[in-house]
Design a binder for these strands. Structure first.
Lengths: 135, 135
DNA sequence: TTAAAACCATATAGTCACTATAAGGTCAAC
DNA sequence: GTTGACCTTATAGTGACTATATGGTTTTAA
């Protein structure tokens, strides 16, 4: 399988595949005589794993860590679970921060209606005043 | 006021101040004979405005746009409100996406308990399977 | 047969909003 | 006169790609 076919199969850009290879997430495939990369099914599984991790918003470093666990299958899996727990905490604190931000933005927005001049804009006044609450 | 004092006053790094100047968000200040930047109170207000916008997670491009409105105070302010509305939508869709992600992660995490070997880890199996729901 | 298109390769720069580092000039205090 | 704190510029790094430039190869169509 060449890189374009792999890209099509998994639904990734060919550039991204080469990028993952450079980052050490995808093993370097064999090459044809002309230098074209040749991929096996193992590569496509590995790439699909990476993509699913990215959908879960895991960083490339975290994916790398998961791969190291996979390559040593007789370790206890507590570390995998801990990685996921940390990631869940991370996502939750992002949500909390964004919810606080949303509140602040909505209250700022409520301080103006359309049909004013910029000079009298409640939104701009609200930002310009030092009265903003830190999150 | 020199750059270090401005940085102290507003609570920003000196590098960040120079960065904002290069980006065109902060006007180039006058210089002393030795080349040191000299800031006025107008600069500190402008910088504080930028910082408060950044706390609201507005992009530098959006801040630039707001500055253009400020520099032309007799326009209607509907565009300012629209900018904020767009930003609120953006934040809300981030929240929605993260909440969906959290759900997915929590259900993945529930598929494993500690004390297994990596080989039998429910989390890794869950990611490896193609059964993941797209968000 | 040849010429265009589709594919492959590498290397490099751009995105965003900084942050870090290097290498050096200026100034006040001791 | 030298130490330390401050200032200057320029350049590179962050993360995870994405875009562009330039050129080689293969396939397809006229």
């Amino acid at each position: 399988m060449r890189i374009g076919q792999l890209a099509e199969l998994v639904g990734v850009d060919t550039q991204t595949i080469r990028f993952y290879e450079r980052q050490g997430l995808l093993p370097s495939p064999d090459r044809q005589e002309n230098g074209y990369r040749v991929y096996t099914e193992e590569h496509s599984e590995r790439l699909a794993f990476i993509c699913r991790c990215r959908i879960l918003d895991l960083s490339l470093a975290e994916i790398h860590e998961l791969q190291r666990y996979q390559d040593d299958p007789h370790q206890p899996c507590a570390a995998v679970n801990a990685l996921l727990d940390d990631h869940i905490s991370h996502v939750r604190s992002q949500i909390t921060a964004l919810q606080a931000l949303e509140k602040q933005l909505v209250s700022l927005r409520a301080s103006c209606n359309d049909g004013r001049e910029v000079e009298a804009c409640g939104v701009l006044a609200g930002i310009s005043e030092g009265s903003m609450h830190q999150q």
